[in-house]
Design a protein around this nucleic acid. Structure first.
Lengths: 148, 148
DNA sequence: GCATTTTAGTATCTATACTTACCAATTTTG
DNA sequence: CAAAATTGGTAAGTATAGATACTAAAATGC
C-alpha cells in the first residue's frame, strides 16, 4: 500500500487543488479574501450578530483560528466586533456596509468557481462525489472523529 | 447557494477530519509524525537519496514547505541531509536507521487508519469516493489548476 | 567561453489550523 | 449564596501551505 493512494493523501491534494482554484479565480476577479474569510462572511451574512464561538462552529474551525480570521476581516474593515452586554465574554460580530457590499460581489464568483474545482469530473460524477463527501463529513461529526 | 454546500467548503472539512483521525490514531499509537512528514518518509523509503525538490513533487508540496518538513525530520534524527557532490545545489536526503525503523512501525498504523477517515461510508462508497477523488486530483494536475 | 536562464534551497511573510494554557465572565452545584 | 465547572476569547507555540525574493550552482544559448 503506497502512501500516495491512501485516503488522507488524496484528500490533502484535493484540498490544495481546491484552494488553488479558489485563489486564482478570486485574484483574477480582484478579491483579497481567503476561503475561510469568505465562509465567515457567509455565516455573518445569513445570521448577523453571531459571536465568535458560534462562527467557529459554523465554519468548522476552532475558537483560536476563528479569532484570527475575524481579526483580519476587522483590519480590512469588513466586519465590526462589539462586546455583548448580555454576556460580556462574547463579542457580537456583524458585517460592515463595506463587508456586505464585498460579500454580495464575491458570492457569484465563489459560487461559479465550485465547478472548476471538480473540473475533471462529469456533472454526474460531481454530484456523486459531493454526496459521498458530505456523507463522510456528516458521519464523522456524528461519530467520534471530530470531538470538540 | 449556501457556502456550506459548496465543494470547496466540504473538501476543507474532509481535510480537517482526515488530519484529526490521523492525529488521534497516531498519538494513541505513540507516534509523533504529521501526515506530510509520513508522506516524505514514504517517498524516501521507496527511493532513498531523493533531493528535496523531487520529494516536494512526490508529496505535492512546494520547495519551501518541503524544506521545513525535512528540517523537522532531521531534528528528530529520522533523516540525514548531505550536499550532492554531483550537483552542489541539491541535498541528498536519506532515512536514518532510526527513521527506517520508525517508518516500518508507523506504516501499518497509517494504512489501518485510512478506513476510519471514511468510516461513514460503506466499502463500495469508499472505493467510489476514492476513485472520483483521485480522478479530480489527476485531472487538475493535467489541466491548469496546479501549475508549478 | 561567457552571458542568460533555469534550478535547488533558504528566508521571510501571511494565512489557516490545532494544542495548551490562561483570564474573565457566566452557569451549575452543593 | 459560595465553590466548582463551563464557556468565550486571547496568547504562545508548532506545522502545513503558498508567494516572493534571494543566493548559489548548473545548464543553455549564442
Amino acid at each position: 500500500m503506497n502512501a500516495k493512494n491512501m485516503a488522507g493523501h488524496v484528500i490533502r491534494q484535493l484540498h490544495q487543488m481546491s484552494t488553488q482554484v479558489y485563489a486564482s479565480h478570486m485574484q483574477a476577479a480582484g478579491f483579497d479574501l481567503t476561503p475561510v474569510q469568505f465562509a465567515a462572511m457567509d455565516a455573518l451574512s445569513a445570521q448577523p450578530g453571531l459571536d465568535q464561538a458560534t462562527i467557529a462552529a459554523s465554519i468548522a474551525c476552532d475558537r483560536a483560528t476563528t479569532g484570527g480570521v475575524i481579526d483580519r476581516l476587522e483590519q480590512k474593515g469588513l466586519v465590526a466586533r462589539v462586546v455583548n452586554e448580555k454576556d460580556r465574554r462574547a463579542r457580537v460580530v456583524t458585517l460592515t456596509d463595506q463587508g456586505r457590499d464585498l460579500f454580495q460581489q464575491a458570492l457569484p464568483i465563489v459560487a461559479g468557481l465550485q465547478v472548476d474545482i471538480l473540473q475533471a469530473l462529469s456533472p454526474d460524477e460531481r454530484s456523486d462525489f459531493l454526496r459521498l463527501a458530505k456523507k463522510a463529513v456528516q458521519g464523522a461529526q456524528d461519530g467520534d472523529a471530530l470531538r470538540t
